[in-house]
Amino acid sequence: MRGFMRNAFAMIELEMRRLKHDRTELYSRAVQPILWIAVFGPIMGSVRAIPTGGIPYTDYITPGALIQSTTFVSIFYGLTIVWERESGILKKLLVAPASRYSIVIGRAMASGVRAIFQALIIIPVALLMGVRFTPSVLNFILALLVIFVSSGGFAATSILVASFMKTRERFMGIGQALTMPLFFASNALYPVAMMPEIMQWIAHFNPMSYVVDAVRSLMITGNLANLPIDLAAIFIFDAVMFVVASINFRRIIE
C-alpha cells in the first residue's frame, strides 16, 4: 500500500512538473469552453427555449462546458501513454518495482490534477461573464474534488483505449469518436428530459451526465438532492475503469 501511494504520487508529481515547464495545452484547451460560456450561452439564453429551472442559461451550461473541457483533457490523456509506448518509457516503468494498478491509477489521477488546473482557468472567465456561483467555499472545493476524481475515471478509460489502439492515429480517431457523443448525450447543454427517448436512455449510462449534475448542483443551483446518486455513479465508474484499465495495461507493450 505504501508503495502504491508512493508511485501514484510520483506520477502526479511528474504531471505537475510537466505543467510547470509548459502550460500552452491548458490555455489552448480553455478556448472551446470559454466560447460556450461567452458566446453560445448568452445567444441561446436570449431565446429562452430551454427549461433550466429558473437559472440563466449561461449559468446552466457553465458546469457543462467546464466538464466537457476537463473530460476531453482526460480522454486524450491516453495520447501521452501512446507516446510513452512508442518511446521506451512504458517498458522501463513496467520493469520498475511498481504495480500496474499504481501506474494506471497514478497516471489517471495525474490527469485529474491537470483537469483541476483547467477548471481554474475557465472559472474566472465564467465569473467575468456574470455567472453566479453558489457562495460556498465548501461546495466549490467539493466540486473541484468531483472534477478531480471523475477525470481520473475518464483518463483510465483513455488508458484502456490506448492499450488497444496502439498508434496515435488510431487513438485520435477513437478519441474524437468518443468525445462529442459523450458531450451531446449528456445534460451538459440541455436537460435529459428534452432528449429523444433513446438518447435519454444513453444519457443515463453516460458518466458525464452524473459529473455535470454533481458540479451543477454544487456550484450553481445549490440543490444537493441528487448528489449522493451522482457521487455513487462516479465512484462506480472510477472503480470499474481503474480495474479494467489496470488488468489490460500489460497488453500495451506486447
Partner: peptide, 17 residues
C-alpha cells in the same frame, strides 16, 4: 524487478522535464 535495471532500445526519458 527489484534487482535489475533496464535501458530499452528506444528513448525512455520524459523530454518535457
Amino acid at each position: 524487478r527489484e534487482m535489475v535495471s533496464y535501458v530499452p532500445q528506444e528513448m525512455s526519458v520524459w523530454t518535457d522535464i
